[in-house]
Simulated scan of single mutants.
Amino acid sequence: MAEQSELEKKILVVGGGRMGSAILNGWLQQGMTPSSIYLIDRGLETLEGFKDKGVHTFQNVEEVPAGITFDVFLLALKPQVIIQQVTEFNRLISDSTCLVSVAAGIMVATLKQMLPNAKNVVRVMPNTPAMIGKGVMVGYSDKQAEFVKLIEGLFSTLGRFFWIADEQQMHAVTAISGSGPAYLFYFAQCFVESAKTLGLDENLAQELALETVIGAANLIEQSDDDVEILRKNVTSPNGTTQAGLEALMADSILKQLMEACCQQAAKRSVELS
């Protein structure tokens, strides 16, 4: 859990979409004072939900009272929206504000160029399991040492946090942990559909496939063995598992598809930068 001093920072969150809301809800669940949080979002339903929790809510920049100094400015908009709208937020940033961007691809130098008041910028790549405290977050800052305690205090409440020293690695991070949950969701979707083709009814197919994915993931987390050893441990020679794996691993097609998947995601991150 974050230290109380980190939970009492005055924070502005711009963007209450899936990721912004996941982070904000995680902070609230960990004891952050709702009245210390200010949220800007165009969605009235999103604003009403957080207003009911005690968060200050606004539909646009103009509604935010002048003179407020924010310790942290969390920029949780899509990259395309940031490029179009971000300059309007410049007045809400002071010399002491730490700007934290969770947008894929937008580099620190670009953020500083678009927001001249932002002297202190940290990029963080989270992923959606942060919604349940099981996220993986990776941070980068050209002034990393100054923000280690602040950023780790805020984001470690949502899962595991790591730093990188080279911002170029953020493209790979985005492709792996940032986009990775979607790849696994698609695998689970295909697994369910395969269960149906074997004649299981829809409900049972879903329960068996998804609970198997969940159980295997928990075993990975709790075991001291790496995933290759775990796979070999459940693969009896000439058994059913080996037969299935031989089809799955034939000609390394799945491995090649995974590599292509991650490479394309990283390439898109580069394009967005």
Rank of each mutant, 00 (worst) to 15 (best):
M1G: 13
E3T: 02
E3A: 04
Q4T: 13
S5N: 10
E8Y: 09
K10D: 10
L12V: 10
V14H: 02
G15L: 02
G15C: 01
G16H: 01
R18K: 15
S21C: 03
A22S: 14
A22P: 04
I23K: 05
I23M: 14
L24P: 02
G26I: 04
G26S: 07
W27A: 02
Q30F: 06
G31E: 04
M32F: 10
P34F: 03
S35M: 03
I37Y: 03
I40N: 02
R42T: 12
E45V: 10
E48N: 11
K51L: 02
G54K: 06
E63P: 06
A66Y: 10
G67P: 06
I68D: 04
I68Y: 08
F73C: 07
F73W: 06
L75I: 06
P79D: 06
P79A: 07
I82T: 10
Q85V: 14
T87E: 15
T87I: 11
E88I: 14
N90Y: 04
S94D: 12
S101F: 05
S101E: 06
S101Q: 09
A103F: 07
A104E: 01
G105S: 05
M107H: 06
T110A: 15
K112S: 02
P116I: 09
P116S: 08
V124E: 01
T128P: 06
G133M: 05
K134C: 03
G135L: 03
M137F: 05
V138W: 02
K143M: 07
V148W: 04
K149R: 11
L150C: 08
I151S: 09
L154A: 06
F155P: 04
S156N: 13
R160L: 12
F161M: 14
F162A: 13
D166C: 05
E167C: 01
E167W: 01
Q168A: 14
H171N: 05
V173R: 00
V173N: 03
A175Y: 04
S177Y: 03
G180M: 01
G180N: 01
F185P: 03
Y186I: 09
F187P: 07
F191I: 04
S194T: 15
A195V: 07
A195M: 11
K196S: 12
T197K: 13
G199I: 09
G199E: 11
D201Q: 13
E202R: 11
E202K: 14
E202A: 15
E202L: 07
N203D: 15
Q206V: 05
E207A: 13
A209D: 07
A209E: 04
E211H: 14
V213P: 05
V213G: 04
G215L: 11
A216N: 08
N218G: 13
L219T: 09
S223L: 09
D224I: 09
D224T: 15
E228M: 10
R231Y: 04
S236V: 08
P237G: 08
G239C: 10
G244D: 09
L245P: 07
L248N: 03
L248V: 09
A250W: 07
K255P: 00
K255G: 00
Q256E: 14
L257A: 13
L257E: 14
A260I: 00
Q263E: 12
Q264T: 13
A265N: 05
S269W: 00
S269N: 04
V270W: 08
E271R: 01
E271H: 00
S273D: 10
